[in-house]
């Protein structure tokens, strides 16, 4: 467990260093006079002159040598001074806080939906087998072939454009969350339903489950006492693997539905080359990713204290 936490701590540092370095390179690699562009972005084209460009240049350390600038970049990063957006001029950290809430609510809603879809379907298809199993397998194979943004597009076309049941984009009401969360939930469940299925089948067919039955426990007792936890261990571990799918899904879904979360912010910043926001958003995604991975590690540890059994 300690080794795991240490590894996650290392990953946090890796995130900061990696994102910092990449965005630093990104800034240095930008064509044209950086300071002019930023000043233009901040004060408007007309108000930009050499003075305002010089102010920006000094502020961002663009007049320093590469190594000094790199050092300064990290000092800022470590003191959580993420700078201001080149587009809106507001503090990146404030923008991030605002986005974070939206992303987290989407991620949580999507994960819960995926559980509500995957667990009953996976268990039922493992229990029943036969045609239900084949049906679930076909649907899940088909769903997996669709990229998450295509699932989102189809949802928009069906629910918003054709049937006009739900709003497409925006974030004013809880209704706006339904389609993005459902998209995320479906794309995750397409895979995790199979994992639940496979693990449930493994447990139902195991010697210990058989023994729980032959020593006299009923189906329900055996499932509650020896099924649930043993199925949960690999499923939770798989959720850790799925975090990548989830975060990538969040990025795509937010962009598709104009959901104002970090993924949306990141893509927009990349499009408009707003480097401080790119750095901030990528950093935040990385931190979220590592933190959630750690939570999954801890959950696995408590569910299965044997440790080291899972890959």
């Amino acid at each position: 467990m300690r080794a795991l936490l240490l590894k996650r701590g290392l990953q946090l540092i890796a995130v900061a260093w990696g994102v910092g370095t990449l965005t630093f390179l990104l800034m240095r690699a930008l064509p044209g006079d950086m300071a002019y562009r930023i000043a233009a972005g901040r004060y408007g084209m007309d108000a930009t002159d050499t003075t305002s460009a010089d102010i920006v240049r000094a502020e961002l350390g663009l007049d320093q040598s590469a190594i000094a600038a790199y050092g300064q970049w990290f000092i800022d990063l470590l003191s959580l001074n993420l700078g201001r957006s080149l587009v809106s001029g507001s503090l990146v950290i404030d923008e991030l806080w605002h986005m974070l809430g939206h992303s987290v609510s989407l991620a949580i809603a999507g994960s819960i939906l995926s559980l509500f879809i995957a667990v009953p379907i996976g268990l039922a298809s493992a229990w029943k087998g036969g045609w239900l199993d084949r049906l679930v397998l076909s649907v899940s194979t088909a769903m997996r072939a669709l990229p998450v943004f295509v699932i989102g597009l189809l949802m928009i076309i069906l629910f918003a454009l054709e049937w006009q049941l739900l709003p497409v984009a925006g974030y004013d009401t809880a209704f706006h969350l339904i389609l993005p969360a459902l998209t995320l939930g479906l794309s995750m469940a397409a895979v995790s339903a199979r994992v639940v299925h496979v693990e449930a089948k493994r447990v139902f067919g195991s010697t210990f489950y058989e023994f729980a039955r032959t020593k006299g426990l009923t189906h329900v007792q055996a499932f509650r006492r020896h099924g649930v936890r043993n199925i949960a261990v690999p499923v939770v571990a798989f959720f850790g693997i799925q975090l990548i799918t989830m975060i990538e899904g969040v990025v795509m879904i937010e962009s598709l539905f104009s959901w104002p979360g970090i993924g949306h912010g990141l893509v927009h910043a990349i499009f408009s080359r707003d480097i401080p926001v790119i750095q901030g958003a990528a950093l935040m995604m990385g931190i979220l990713f590592v933190v959630m991975n750690t939570l999954v590690d801890i959950a696995c540890y408590y569910l299965d204290p044997r440790g080291g059994q899972l890959q």
Partner: peptide, 18 residues
């Protein structure tokens, strides 16, 4: 560990920005 610290798509997005 370093590379896996970021979800793949985010890493690719940053590269795409460069």
């Amino acid at each position: 560990t370093l590379i896996l610290a970021l979800p793949g798509l985010v890493l690719v997005l940053i590269f795409a920005a460069i």
